[in-house]
């Protein structure tokens, strides 16, 4: 099952969030080495990152982001213990979300 790992760290007034998502990120251009058939596109299209229910960043992706995507971003105004939520939706309409607190 797809899942998301989040690490959010506060330093000064900057919170650095790093996360790893499990996803195949198929571009739809790759061929299966055994059958020679194209592997259908399956990639994350949108990632929404929230801090205390406020969106701090939205990412739109193509299949050009590597498999099991890594994402890191920074924002101001976080405090230790605040919740961070990350949610993605892919081109098949599947979605997943996870949350963690700022340490």
């Amino acid at each position: 099952m797809p899942d998301i790992k989040i690490r959010a760290k506060l330093s000064g007034d900057e919170t650095t969030v790093k996360c790893l998502m499990s996803h195949p990120m198929e571009t739809g251009l790759r061929k299966d080495s055994k059958t020679g058939e194209l592997v259908p596109a399956h990639f994350i299209q949108e990632v929404v990152c929230k801090h205390k229910d406020q969106v701090v960043m939205t990412a739109s992706w193509s299949g050009g982001v590597s498999k099991n995507p890594y994402l890191s971003f920074k924002f101001k105004g976080g405090a230790s213990g605040d919740p961070i939520e990350i949610a993605w939706t892919d081109n098949k309409g599947e979605s997943s979300s996870a949350s963690d607190t700022i340490s």
Binding site: F73, F75, K76
Partner: peptide, 10 residues
């Protein structure tokens, strides 16, 4: 609120 910094793998 964002700081203009992003990192990913492509």
């Amino acid at each position: 609120a964002s700081i203009p910094f992003v990192a990913t793998r492509i």
